[in-house]
C-alpha cells in the first residue's frame, strides 16, 4: 500500500482535489481509501462515500488535531492494509500553521489556494515548507499575474517541492497529480518506528489541562509572556 498525507488550510480544496485525483486512479483499477482528520465537524466523509471511496473519520474534539493525527495514523494505516488498498490518502486540516503532520519517507502534499492572500505562503510553516508536492487551487478565478505571484511565493518558501496547479471543480491537473500520488515500487508495511518530519510545538500549560480562569496565579507549566514594552 502507498500512504499519502495531504494537508492544507481549511477550505483550500483538499477534498475536491483528492476526489478528482482518486477518480483517475480508480480508472487505472487501483483501490483507493481515505481518512479524514478534522477538529469539530466534517461532512467530507460523505463526499468520499458518495464517490465510492471507503473512508474513516477522526474528530479530535478538544485535543490538538495534529497530536490526534499522530496518535491514530498507525492504526488507520493498518486498517488500509487490511482492506487491501493500493493507496490510502490521509487528509487533515492545518489549523495553527505551525505543525506539519508529515512523516519521513511518506509522501506529503500541501494544498493551498490562490485566494488565500499573497503573504500566506510565508505564514504557513512546516506544512508548506516540508511538503514534497504543493498543489495550488482556485487558479481559474484569479488572473495569470496573481497565479504567478502566488506560485513564486510558494517557490521561495519551498524551492524543492513539485508545484502544481489543480482545479478541484473541473479536475484540470488532477490526472497529472494522480500520477505522482501512487508509485508501484513503494510498499508500506507499518508506520511503527517512523518519525515525523518535524516536532509538534511544545505545550502543556494549565489551560491544556482544562483551566478556564484568566490570571497569573492560574497559569502553570509551559507559559510564555509577550514583551509588550519592546514589542
Amino acid at each position: 500500500m502507498n500512504l499519502v498525507t495531504i494537508s492544507g488550510p481549511p477550505s483550500s480544496g483538499k477534498t475536491a482535489v483528492i476526489l478528482k485525483a482518486a477518480e483517475n486512479l480508480k480508472k487505472r483499477g487501483l483501490k483507493v481509501g481515505a481518512v479524514k482528520f478534522d477538529c469539530l465537524h466534517t461532512d467530507d466523509d460523505l463526499a468520499y462515500e458518495k464517490a465510492g471511496i471507503p473512508v474513516k473519520k477522526g474528530l479530535s474534539g478538544s485535543l490538538c488535531p495534529d497530536h490526534y493525527f499522530v496518535s491514530n495514523i498507525e492504526a488507520v494505516a493498518a486498517w488500509g492494509m487490511e482492506e487491501g488498498f493500493d493507496l490510502l490518502v490521509s487528509e487533515s486540516a492545518g489549523l495553527c500553521n505551525r505543525c506539519s503532520p508529515y512523516i519521513k519517507e511518506i509522501k506529503a502534499v500541501c494544498v493551498i489556494d490562490n485566494l488565500s492572500g499573497i503573504n500566506t505562503p510565508r505564514k504557513i510553516g512546516p506544512m508548506l515548507r516540508m511538503a514534497d508536492i504543493v498543489v495550488i487551487t482556485k487558479g481559474d478565478i484569479v488572473s495569470q499575474a496573481e497565479r504567478e505571484v502566488f506560485a513564486a511565493g510558494v517557490y521561495a518558501v519551498n524551492p524543492g517541492a513539485v508545484i502544481m496547479h489543480v482545479n478541484g471543480l473541473t479536475g484540470q491537473g488532477a490526472y497529472e497529480l494522480s500520477t505522482l500520488l501512487f508509485d508501484e515500487r513503494t510498499k508500506l508495511d507499518t508506520l511503527k518506528g517512523k518519525k515525523l518530519r518535524f516536532s509538534m510545538p511544545s505545550a502543556l500549560c494549565s489551560y491544556c489541562l482544562g483551566e478556564t480562569r484568566i490570571g497569573e496565579s492560574y497559569q502553570m507549566g509551559n507559559v510564555r509572556k509577550m514583551d509588550i514594552k519592546n514589542n
Binding site: D140, Q144, I163
Partner: peptide, 18 residues
Amino acid sequence: FSGNRKLVAQLSQNMNFV
C-alpha cells in the same frame, strides 16, 4: 515540475483580480 517555470499562461472569461 518547477513552480517557477510554467509553459502555459491562461486567460479566461471568469478570471478576476482579487
